[in-house]
Nucleic acid binder design. Structure first.
Lengths: 140, 140
DNA sequence: GTTCCTGCAAAAGCTTTGCAGAAGA
DNA sequence: TCTTCTGCAAAGCTTTTGCAGGAAC
């Protein structure tokens, strides 16, 4: 069950995070565009709508949303962080050809390892890389 | 069975990669310091020994070694790449407190998911985060 | 001798910081 | 009103690029 825009707004209110116009727009964008966008992609798109928007605000907003647990930051490579509104358990597959990131279902609770018996695990990331079906069919 | 310095030198020769003094030193450093160092850590340490060494050369060398498959680049977060001479199957645990990365045993071949049935998978990364036993015992 | 490598300087790309003015509650 | 947020400019970091001199084979 995915969280709706209204649920997330409520979540922000509970945490006393101001519902500014810019923040709500970023949140809305992430819900409507679940392709794991970069800061630059979010900024470029929203800037067309809100001409005064700054990239700093996009950075600030994403940091707030990540800290609040509403958004997940993904670091696979390429020195750029990508953002995901879906904070549920899942893996990420990054295509080397088109750079797109696909989600895949994975039960991270089942990933338990003897070597980590004395570790406190707060986050589990499973990132695969390769070629996605779309790019495979194009190269044929 | 881990690869020795001599094995890796042989591997470089086969691939027609020049065995320059700098490259051998970087390789040797990675073998002797398997703590997943950053470029800066490698550079700083080796610079004490080779005063003319440049960071560009460290970057160049690591790129060559990664392309040759002798070294693995790790991107967990923090916009810095870390390097690992161990290219065998294993996961990485990064401590949020001391930033150290521990290896843990994992058979990535067993990680197969229905959602990825039409994908060509070239790389599988399993990265966990949390607090390591060393930091846990210190905070008590 | 030819090819490849090194290292300096500069630039590029992503992200953070400081701060004055503006907006939210 | 009081607190928090926005957005500009500047700076901070890691990494890449161009290129002349130097090393490897």
């Amino acid at each position: 069950m995915k969280a709706s825009f209204e649920d997330l707004k409520e979540e922000l209110k509970i945490r006393h995070i101001n519902l500014s116009h810019q923040r709500l727009k970023v949140l809305e964008y992430l819900i409507q565009n679940q392709y794991h966008p970069t800061v630059d992609q979010i900024f470029t798109e929203l800037h067309q709508e809100i001409s005064t928007l700054s990239k700093t605000t996009v950075y600030n907003t994403l940091r707030v949303l990540v800290e609040a647990g509403l958004v997940r930051a993904i670091n696979i490579e390429d020195h750029e962080t990508r953002y995901d509104i879906n904070v549920e358990n899942h893996g990420h597959f990054k295509c080397e050809s088109c750079a797109r990131i696909d989600d895949f279902r994975i039960d991270t609770d089942s990933l338990v390892f003897d070597d980590l018996i004395n570790f406190v695990i707060k986050e589990k990331n499973v990132n695969f890389k390769g070629i996605c079906p779309r790019c495979l069919s194009m190269s044929k």
